[in-house]
Each structure stands twice: as C-alpha cells, then as structure tokens.
C-alpha cells in the first residue's frame, strides 16, 4: 500500500519535498473547517451555494 509513498518524491521537483512534507504534517493537525461566510459562499455558482448551506 505504501509503495506509492516513496515514489511520489521522484515525480516532483526535489525542492518541493520539504514544503510538501511539512504541509502533510500541518494538515494532520488541521482543525475541521468552520462554517463558511456568506461572502465566501457567494463566490460560488448559485447551485453550488445551495448545496453547501
């Protein structure tokens, strides 16, 4: 299953690796997204907006 996880580093530019690794760690601690503001939701197409609220 983890066969992939070594692989990915060879696919992308090497200088991205530390950035991505750090972000993967950060995302592990990421809190769930609080409800979105009207201002943000209004940037969505009308139909989508209704699905979100």
């Amino acid at each position: 299953r983890n066969g992939n996880s070594d692989n990915w580093q060879s696919v992308i530019p090497q200088e991205w690796i530390p950035v991505i690794n750090q972000d993967v760690a950060r995302q592990r601690d990421q809190r769930p997204q609080p409800p979105l503001s009207d201002a943000y939701l209004q940037g969505l197409p009308a139909k989508r907006r209704r699905m979100m609220t």
Partner: peptide, 14 residues
C-alpha cells in the same frame, strides 16, 4: 501527487 498530498486542504471546500 499535489492533489493527493493536499487532500485535507482541498476538502475544506467540496
């Protein structure tokens, strides 16, 4: 790779 590694962030808005 990007989409996979950043899935958690991407999921913040479906």
């Amino acid at each position: 790779v990007l989409c996979e590694k950043y899935q958690v962030s991407i999921n913040r808005d479906p």
